[in-house]
Amino acid sequence: MYNLKELALMDENGKRSDGRGIDELRSIKITVGVVKNADGSAYIEFGKNKIIVAVYGPREVHPKHMALPDRCVLRCRYHMSPFSTDTRKNPAPSRREVEISKVMRESLEPSLILSDYPRAVIDVFVEVLQADGGSRCAGINAASVALADAGINMRDLVSACAAGRLSDNIVLDINDLEDKEGDADMPVAYLPNLEQVTLLQLDGKLTTAQFSECLEKAINGCKSVYEIQKEALMKKYFGNEMELKEEA
């Protein structure tokens, strides 16, 4: 027997509120190089999320006292546009935005070789045009692609995806409704080639077994996202050719 809440989130056929299965990602579309003035940029549509990311740098640090002698400073700004939600959002940085800016920076930092650019700064601007849950993961995905587009030395791309719990079901890539009404939400950022986790947050309660399942699903989701990131970068720089054709 399902209660009203469960019925709204998942039907008896195992379909979720937006018609997806439990292991299904929302549709993802990434476009690289959308901001001409930026050194690198990307636009991502992650379900109903629409996010644009611009990367500037490495460039001179202002104020100068922030410069570090041995490495580059990474600054990240996550911002939701006033029109990104159903009710107007105050454009001033909220507590949530400051926190997301911080976790995004910390999830991107391990992938960057910041020691290659001492005394410089890299600025990452993440602007959410439309929000639908999981915007930090979508922002990380776009930011990672934008950093690669800016030509900054990276050990790996960062792919992010959330998993969560709806009643007893562990589901992949939870949307806004599932985030609000569900029982747990776990965003994960991952370096797919190096197989390292750079972000792991958990909002809600999970048993040990559920946690393991949730993490595994999120990492699988990250690997799927990575393929889309890779394809977007390849398309921008090499067109539809995935292999370099050599003369015989």
Binding site: S111, A148, N153, M154, R155, D156, L157, L191, P192, N193, L194, K230, L233, M234, Y237, F238, E241, M242, E243, L244, E246
Partner: peptide, 12 residues
């Protein structure tokens, strides 16, 4: 190895 297209993180 042949010359090939790579992105950050690709094992060469």
């Amino acid at each position: 190895i042949k010359r090939r297209y790579v992105i950050p993180g690709d094992k060469i």
